[in-house]
């Protein structure tokens, strides 16, 4: 009905956070992310998945006639009973979608740091042995 709105709203928030983090990373002098990928870069992955996913889901809703080009844009919003169902779906499915995407991103971000960390350790070991 309108479940894609929840991940889209999260995407809007994380995009603002990413811009702020990127600005603060550019301003900071020290290389705090020596063994890690920059947080702004990781947030870019999350933004990509959230915007991309909710965009394609919005298309699906348009396909099924659940979105209209006119106010109130969501066809379920025209009927109070349907609105309740829509809000319930947003709270359950929509939240679950946002949580799943964020959880997968979290695993990716940790795994990427581990890979970079192990690569650096191997390089320093090889340098010490030489």
């Amino acid at each position: 009905m309108a479940c894609f709105i929840v991940p889209a709203a999260e995407a809007a928030v994380t995009t603002i956070i990413q811009k702020a983090v990127k600005r603060s990373e550019a301003n900071s002098d020290h290389e705090s992310t020596d063994n890690k990928i920059r947080l702004s870069e990781k947030l870019k992955w999350l933004n990509g998945m959230l915007w991309g996913g909710s965009g394609l889901l919005a298309f699906e809703h348009l396909w099924h006639g659940e979105i209209s080009p006119f106010f109130p844009f969501l066809t379920a919003a025209n009927d109070p009973a349907e609105t309740v169902k829509m809000l319930h779906e947003m709270a359950t499915s929509g939240s679950a979608m946002a949580i799943l995407v964020t959880a997968v991103w979290g695993v990716l971000a940790v795994a990427a740091d581990k890979i970079i960390g192990s690569e650096k350790t191997e390089k320093s070991k090889a340098g010490a042995a030489a």
């Binding site: 990509g48 991309g52 996913g53 909710s54 965009g55 889901l57 679950a96 979608m97």
Partner: peptide, 14 residues
């Protein structure tokens, strides 16, 4: 990748 994986995860929930 972003679009397809994002949408796949969301449709998986559906």
């Amino acid at each position: 990748l972003y679009m397809f994986w994002g949408a796949s995860l969301m449709w998986l929930v559906d």
